[in-house]
């Protein structure tokens, strides 16, 4: 290829890069996914431990005790909030690192758009889950977590790497299957927020970041 054509090709690539960079947040790191997944698995392990004394008491007494249930609820809520904070902080850290490495601003127009479009379904889901929690409606907590999160990802995928959409669809699918297996919520939750995040994060890292 001669010099003139090389220049034309460069121009076309510039245009493509500019279009992509101005419409999508491209600094989302695969390592963020892996970190969030690890946080979720650690959280699920702690939550699993909380259920043991509860069921031991339940079996020993032979019936349901309201106080035990309230104590369990509170402990699980604390674990959930801790997992959420740890996952957000670690996810943000790796994405910030990637943006800095690529010399891109981390909080630009595309980041703002991604955030707002992710937050609408996510905050809705969060409030919905809190209402379920308020009325002791535990059966569909995990499925609702997965479904709302999945919908948030599908929505967010229009504003960042399109691959996020597949992660979202899998979360939704897992959540819907979980509705037919009430009582196994924690396992589905760990599979979605833990395992899927780690696999997705690894694939993204392999695809986009391994060589950079």
């Amino acid at each position: 290829m001669n010099e003139q054509n090389q220049q034309t090709l460069d121009t076309l690539q510039d245009i493509k890069r500019m279009m992509e960079r101005s419409s999508r947040f491209i600094s989302l790191s695969g390592l963020s996914g892996i970190a969030a997944g690890i946080c979720a698995l650690v959280g699920a392990w702690f939550a699993r431990k909380e259920f043991e004394p509860y069921y031991n008491n339940f079996n020993a007494r032979g019936d349901y005790a309201g106080d035990d249930f309230q104590a369990l609820k509170l402990r699980l809520l604390i674990i959930a909030l801790a997992v959420l904070s740890a996952a957000l902080v670690s996810a943000f850290y790796f994405t910030w690192r990637k943006a800095r490495h690529n010399k891109l601003p981390v909080w630009d127009l595309t980041a703002k758009r991604l955030t707002i479009n992710m937050l609408i379904p996510l905050v809705t889901g969060g409030l919905f889950l809190l209402a379920m929690y308020q009325y002791n409606e535990w059966r569909f907590l995990a499925p609702a977590c997965l479904v709302f999160y999945g919908l948030a990802l599908v929505n967010a995928s229009k504003y960042t790497l399109t691959d996020v959409k597949y992660l979202g669809l899998l979360q939704i699918l897992l959540g819907l299957i979980n509705t037919q297996f009430v009582g196994y919520g924690l396992y589905f939750w760990a599979a979605g927020f833990g395992v899927l995040h780690i696999i997705y994060g690894f694939v993204m890292w392999w695809k986009y970041e391994r060589n950079g």
Partner: peptide, 26 residues
């Protein structure tokens, strides 16, 4: 011109964009 090319590339994929965001992008 590279800058005009950049402005047009950004405008093609964004419904509208303000001066400061455009400045930061380019």
């Amino acid at each position: 011109n590279r800058i005009r090319l950049g402005i047009m590339s950004v405008l093609m994929v964004n419904e509208e964009i303000n001066f400061n965001d455009l400045k930061e992008m380019l």
